[in-house]
Simulated scan of single mutants.
Amino acid sequence: MNIFKYGLKLSLLLMPFFSVAQNKTDHTGSFSFSPAFELLRSTHGNAFYAPSLKANYTFSNGFEAGVGLEYSTTPEHHDNGFVLYKLKFIPVYGNVKYNFKSDKQIRFYAETSLGVSFNKYDIADERTPFTTSRTTEEGLYLYTGFGAKYAISNTLNTFLGIGFKGYKMSTNDLDINPHGLSFMLGFTFF
């Protein structure tokens, strides 16, 4: 959590110094790369921390399509009567983003991602929390949210996003399925 707080404060402090007039907000026909730091606040009360990277192609109608990769981790998570330790989730996904039209330095967007998450953790029953077994599984990864981009220059944007994320979405309420509110802070390079 401290890394996220310091990164956010540093970004907000430095933003005015790098701000320049934005001549080109239309990146139609170009690729972008977006490294980010993500924080998932689970519905069970703990936090997952993750670096991520997306590569998208911008179309003329405001849409972007691409792929992404994330590495999310937390030391402990309680879910459906189990205690999970050393959780590591690696989602690989397709991403679609819509950029709302604007000539300003701040532009809003909506996005969704869908893919597969490769999950690994130690699991124990809450009644015997020190008797663990290693679990490796895959799950349906889902993200949907909104955000805002701030144009620092013609080739660099910073962004802040918020949405809902799940690493193993399922209709079975007894599945281990960490999900919750997700926050994202990063940069986009064109």
Rank of each mutant, 00 (worst) to 15 (best):
V96I: 11
L174M: 13
F183G: 01
Y6V: 12
T58C: 10
N23C: 09
H78Y: 06
I152G: 03
I123W: 01
Y98A: 08
I123T: 12
Y167M: 02
N177F: 09
F37C: 07
H27G: 04
V67A: 14
T58L: 08
S170I: 08
V20F: 08
S32G: 12
K165S: 04
Q22N: 15
L181E: 03
S133Y: 02
A110D: 01
S42C: 11
G186H: 04
Y143S: 03
Y93D: 00
D175V: 08
N46Q: 12
T128Q: 11
L69V: 10
S19T: 13
K120E: 05
S102I: 08
F187P: 01
L8S: 00
D79W: 09
F159V: 02
E111D: 06
E111M: 08
S133E: 13
E111K: 09
S102H: 01
F33A: 10
F18G: 15
Y121V: 07
F48I: 01
T28H: 14
K24V: 10
A47F: 07
T128D: 13
L10W: 05
G81E: 06
I3H: 11
L84G: 03
R107I: 05
S133G: 04
N2A: 08
L156I: 10
F187W: 03
Y71T: 13
L174Y: 15
D103W: 07
G45H: 00
E138T: 14
D26K: 12
M184H: 00
G139C: 11
G81V: 11
F146I: 14
V96Y: 02
N61R: 05
Q22W: 14
K168H: 15
R41N: 14
M15Y: 08
S30W: 11
P91E: 02
G186K: 05
G139E: 03
K168C: 03
G94W: 10
N56L: 10
H179F: 04
K97L: 06
T171S: 15
S182P: 05
I162Y: 03
L140M: 12
F183E: 01
G7T: 12
D175N: 15
L69A: 15
L87W: 06
S153N: 11
D173C: 06
P16F: 11
K88C: 07
Y167F: 13
A110H: 04
P91A: 05
T144K: 09
N23Q: 15
P75D: 15
S182V: 00
I106Y: 01
E64S: 14
T144I: 05
L53I: 10
N119Y: 03
E38S: 05
E137Y: 12
D26R: 14
G161H: 00
V67Q: 06
K149E: 08
V20S: 11
N2Y: 05
D122I: 03
L10C: 09
P91I: 00
K149D: 15
Y93W: 06
G180I: 00
F89N: 10
L40G: 04
L12E: 13
S113V: 00
Q105R: 14
H44K: 14
